[in-house]
Design a protein around this nucleic acid. Structure first.
Lengths: 196, 196, 196, 196
DNA sequence: GATGAATGAGCGTTCATTCAT
DNA sequence: GATGAATGAACGCTCATTCAT
């Protein structure tokens, strides 16, 4: 039977290679070499190159979901929960350069397949934000006019742009902490001064 | 003399083809056919495929910059200016599907060249947001703690995620107006209820 | 493991195709078809088209060197040795039409790469002539005023022009034997009549 | 009417470009630029790229023929005439690098057209050598056993190899004078010592 | 006659995928 | 199951040649 170990090895290798070169510039043989298997072996575990990309997402974003859910389940306060989500996402992106790049680059490769895929695992991740917001609205701490489904996109977009900026080069010399405070400040208190 | 008209025709064709297929899946001959010129003609106007991509950006984002600057120059109030920027960006993205997709997809093709390029015209566009925020801070309407350079990324990321969502499919059934209000509300007033 | 057999098949096919069409007019797919392999297979064995040309030389001229050395080692008399070299070269060129054409045509494709290459295997072949001459000079049978390094070029040039003439068409209706005698006569006894 | 001046300018430019890059690597636009005419203009004077090559030969070798005939007509002694031919060829090749390279490289581009062409002007040049030898045989200074048609090839081949060697690089540090003496010595007196 | 922009056929090379071992 | 040599379709780009001006 196909070894789950080898499956994992290939996923890990692919994550690294896709992050380094982007999906289109990555070669199956790059992944095979990184995973220390033969090119042909990859096709015992995946249908095609694109299928590897999907699996990388499934795997990596699944891990993100589990991780943040674990952190959130101990907390009740929606305001704090949102902070936890934001902080965790930023920290993970800062730490896991590969995942970050895969999200930035590959999430945008317009493709029917990706589009359909996004309705699955990735949207589950975004749904966490929406759930927090809805809970906050029910608790009366978040404004009721905010639509959770729009807000989740806005917040994810903001977080994602920051993490891309980090991985591009020298224009974003801000620390996680600094950015975290700015984002939380912007989204929770807004731009306007209290008197305005 | 090489006709500027043909240059424009190719740019327009490329914008369309890149938007439809993505940079890597777009074929030079697709662009040539769309522009109704011979394949070789494209190389009279551009050095290579990537150069076309850069030119599409330069051209299209340049237009965006000019347009929004025109709208902004009549206005003094920073709060309104930010609304204008946000509204204009959303409207343009909703209207100009090709530009939107090119930004979503191609801006993320990890590539030294794009990265370098982004420091030019594209960053000029983002700098408009930063300038508005700084002006607002000087005028005392925006919180002084906000760092304009971080905020510009956050705001752009939010806007861009929304426009991507629009072009992906059926998950984002919100109108421009609705989204505009949500974004302005989130960024200006924040999530928290006044009493919180 | 890449089969040495296939390597040889491609070399042989390339020799034939280069001879027939010349390097620049030869198509990779011509070689592939002649070798009965796929186009891509060629690139498992060679880096690029030019590399094939170099390998054809290395291979074919290496064989020439081995062959003539084998013939020469049984002989001591420098005068006879020179005759052996000349005779062997002429016979090989007459017999191996492909090698002859490859030498004629491709050796002259002005190119840095070929030029550098010629300092290796090909010059080894020419060095055999020089060695014979030097040995003859030491033995007192060849004139001491002759510079072996110049003479080797002169002799090779003469032989090569003859073999080219053979392969061009109908202007050179001479037999190997006839030409052999003329060349040996010219180089050994000279043009002048004894009384002159 | 087509200007003969422009025709000459293009020939001269082509000689230079072919010599520098070789026929196949030379671009029509290189020649056009060198000749300071438009690409299309070349096609008013020549049928195609290959036709330019033929014309370069016709022109350049024609000049060689005229020049050497001029030198020869003042001389009667066949031995001296052969020396004059050899010396003139070597000097011209040393001086006119472009012509030399065109002969080396382009004369060998196997091609029906070139082959046919060689029966014309180029063979006229070689025929001069044959004529000298025949005249020498009649005068009793050259050996009667030598076949002039073979000898002309041998002598040209030797001269041509020397000139190629000069233009290749650093392996041929011999002066025209040195080489001239060696060639004349080899062809006139032979290799063998008088006692041998 | 002169121009040079336009053409488009053509080729070297790549690489996802297959399959014999 | 694992391998990696073999495949061949596909594409970016070049450049000799044409032709409208």
């Amino acid at each position: 039977m196909k070894s789950p170990d080898k499956h994992r090895k290939i996923i890990r290798a692919a994550t690294k290679v896709f992050a380094k070169k982007g999906f289109f510039n990555a070669r199956i043989s790059d992944i095979a070499k990184e995973a220390k298997v033969a090119d042909g072996t990859i096709y015992l575990y995946f249908n095609n190159k694109f299928d590897i990309l999907l699996s990388v997402f499934e795997q990596e974003i699944g891990k993100l979901i589990d991780q943040v859910n674990l952190l959130l389940e101990k907390e009740e306060n929606p305001k704090v929960k949102l902070e936890i989500f934001i902080t965790n996402h930023l920290e993970e992106m800062k730490k896991n350069r590969y995942l970050a790049e895969v999200i930035h680059i590959e999430l945008r490769q317009t493709s029917k397949l990706i589009r359909e895929y996004r309705k699955n695992t990735f949207n589950e991740y975004l749904a966490i934000i929406a759930a927090i917001i809805e809970q906050g609205q029910e608790a009366g701490v978040f404004q009721k006019e905010i639509k959770a489904d729009i807000a989740k996109q806005i917040i994810f977009g903001a977080l994602d742009e920051i993490s891309r900026c980090w991985h591009i080069g020298n224009d974003c010399p801000y620390t996680t902490e600094e950015v975290r405070l700015q984002i939380i400040s912007l989204f929770q208190a807004g731009l306007l001064t209290p008197s305005a």
